[in-house]
Design a protein around this nucleic acid. Structure first.
Length: 494
RNA sequence: GGCAUCGUGGCCGAGUGGCUAGGCAGAGCUCUGCAAAAGCUUGUACAGCAGUUCGAAUCUGCUCGAUGCCUCCA
């Protein structure tokens, strides 16, 4: 279904600084590139939020009927640890530390990354290319940039000549910086550099003898610079100009700025039509960061084993928490905020469960078609998932009223409501049901609790309230809450 | 220091020139054997100051505060 033909999607384009109507290069097709993780340590929850934002965006595009090629790379080599002058490979450093092969580090953390995303119910990207798998492509780009006069070689390393580039192009247009200002503000601290200019960045770095990760090149053994892989892989799989490039806000400068420069220098055209930047997840009001240790890991969320958490939170509850904030806003993680959104999540899930058994009538109190369009409108407005969720709760309210016999819904409307809820909640937001990310014993648990409910109801009809309350209260102490409704008793597990 | 973003009620978090955000928590009511759940009703708000306007939380300016980037980081 080509839903996109009837919906107008607006996207906040970082490079334009405003929302723009989205129009893909080829009708019905979208090329999207998102900067993936550097696999030298476990992904923390902040990393996950960015990828989750783009997972949601990917899901919405697909729902709209676009054929999407979603490329998300794995950075498994080449990022420098300190200053570019120091020339040390992050992956190699970690490998020496742990006395294993670099590719072993890469493998371990790539697996961790995939496992984590799977728990959060991510859709796999169409292509997940690695930097080490595209060394040849990167070398070719460097050759081209040198040829066009935008790069120079010094002592086996190649640097991008930002000053020369800026004469014909605009270096800084994405991040709103001016090269003159940057030069004016540079402190001359690091001497002995091969670079002509501090703003120049490495395309290729010469490998010192002790450097394990190295590849032959026209300039000697070395490794690619840290912005190049994205240019190489996005160009290879999506073309010289493609629709969407995403990534974390912290990559805007210099990483994405350099990508633009590399692509314009080598291809002569602007690489990206729409730049999307997902904002940070903060902890204690500060950005999560590997280096400062201000972070929390997904597994700590699921087990509750972190000092700031009062209890474990399911992947889906965490996902709901993140979806309640707009992807361009900073979101601060706290136990209170998680508890609040978990309750909301459970309420939403329960309503969806209850919807199935709802009676139908001759009229509807909710204008289902109008409501459905409001859901689309929310997503069409730069993927505004918080507004969407607000609308979902409007449906929850009606479902509960119908369940209480205070409102009614026609059979046809009920079908639309059910389909729409399933679409937005599971397909687009990517949430899963309460017990679905559990351990598979939910069926047995359900049977056991239903038996207890039956026993309690017998006790209640015999006015044996001591027994009935004992069943209810002890179940509650175990985290199983009984809910007496008009048509019997249900329960949920927290 | 430079560039950028943000500052919304007890907490989280949308919105953006006039019209309900939503969730959680609080209060009252309905329901209930009592509760819980659910429903209904309900209070506290747009950092400060000045300006533009018939009207601003929303636009402009300034002040204060916070964050991000400027060095690897989603």
């Amino acid at each position: 279904m080509q839903i996109y033909k009837n919906q107008t999607l607006k996207i906040y384009n970082s490079i334009a600084g405003k929302k723009e109507v989205f129009k893909p290069i080829n009708e019905g097709h979208i090329g999207m590139y998102v900067c993936g993780p550097t696999v030298y340590s476990n992904v923390h929850l902040g990393n996950c939020r960015t990828f989750m934002s783009f997972d949601m965006i990917f899901r919405y595009f697909k729902h709209l009927g676009y054929k999407v090629r979603y490329v998300r790379n794995i950075t498994d080599a080449g990022h420098l640890v300190d200053d570019a002058d120091e020339g040390e490979d992050k992956i190699a450093k970690k490998a020496l530390l742990e006395q294993i092969e670099p590719m072993e580090v890469v493998q371990r953390y790539t697996v961790d990354f995939h496992n984590t995303l799977q728990k959060f119910n991510f859709l796999p990207p169409s292509i997940e290319p690695t930097a080490t798998g595209h060394i040849i492509e990167q070398i070719e780009i460097i050759k081209e940039i040198i040829e066009k006069g935008f790069a120079y070689e010094v002592n086996g390393s190649v640097y991008f000549d930002v000053v020369t580039f800026n004469k014909t192009n605009n270096y800084g247009k994405l991040s709103g910086r001016k090269l003159e200002d940057m030069i004016a503000n540079t402190r001359e601290l690091s001497a002995q550099s091969d670079k002509k200019n501090p703003q120049d960045f490495a395309l290729w770095k010469k490998a010192e003898p002790e450097h394990i990760m190295r590849w032959p090149s026209p300039w000697g053994d070395g490794f690619p610079g840290w912005h190049l892989e994205c240019t190489a892989m996005s160009t290879k799989y999506l073309g010289k100009t493609f629709d969407i490039h995403g990534g974390g806000m912290d990559l805007k400068f210099p990483h994405h700025e350099c990508e633009i420069a590399q692509a314009e220098a080598s291809n002569g055209v602007s690489p990206v039509n729409y730049w999307l930047h997902a904002n940070m997840l903060t902890l204690n009001g500060k950005k999560m960061s590997k280096s400062t240790g201000n972070n929390i890991y997904p597994n700590e969320m699921f087990t509750g084993e972190n000092p700031i958490l009062s209890k474990p939170f399911s992947p889906s509850a965490v996902r709901f928490f993140m979806m309640q904030a707009h992807y361009t806003s900073i979101l601060d993680l706290s136990n209170d905020a998680l508890l609040a959104s978990e309750k909301g999540y459970l309420k939403l899930m329960e309503a969806i469960t209850n919807l199935k058994g709802l009676p139908t009538g001759s009229s509807s109190n909710l204008n289902v078609d109008a409501w459905k369009q409001k859901c689309y409108d929310a997503m069409n407005d730069d993927f505004n998932s918080p507004i969407l969720i607000a609308h979902l709760f409007e449906a929850v309210k009606h479902i509960n009223l119908i369940k209480d016999g205070k409102e009614s819904i026609t059979a046809n409307d009920k079908t639309i409501l059910e389909e729409t809820l399933n679409t937005f909640v599971f397909e687009i937001l990517g949430l899963t049901g309460v017990n679905e990310d559990g351990n598979g014993n939910s069926k047995k648990l359900e049977e056991v609790v239903n038996l207890l409910i039956q026993l309690r109801n017998d006790a209640r009809s015999n006015k044996d309230f001591a027994l009935s309350d004992q069943i209810r209260d002890q179940l509650l102490a175990m985290g199983i809450q009984l809910k007496d409704g008009k048509d019997g008793t249900t329960f949920n597990v927290s």
